[in-house]
Amino acid sequence: MSAIGNPMIRMPSSAKKGEIVEVRSLIMNPMTTGLQKNKAGKIIPAHFIQTVEVTFGAKPLSHLDWSTAVSANPYLAFKMRAEDSGILEMTWKDNQGGVWSAKASLKVA
């Protein structure tokens, strides 16, 4: 299996108050469906991220539920309104107990 985890967040480090900024993220995960067989004819077990939690300043911002239809090594972009400086944290959890987090800070002028 290729690398797993290694979550990354890219977003502006600063923004004007009230500005809507884009948050972009990436994490390595096979996102296998459990429906496909390997070359030996054995089912490849489903292994996929099921939830993504996003907080800003420790307050809930967004939450996602994913199926196996989301592509391998999921990329996710979304927006947030910059009101106060703080830390954005994202947490990905997969169905095999994997949990990964990443943080990024935003300074609001």
């Binding site: 911002l61 592509s71 999921p74 990329y75 996710l76 979304f78 927006k79 309104r81 009101e83």
Partner: peptide, 13 residues
């Protein structure tokens, strides 16, 4: 509401 915009981008199979 703090998202400011109901927007997202992802990739699917």
């Amino acid at each position: 509401p703090a998202n400011g915009r109901a927007y997202f981008q992802e990739r699917v199979k």
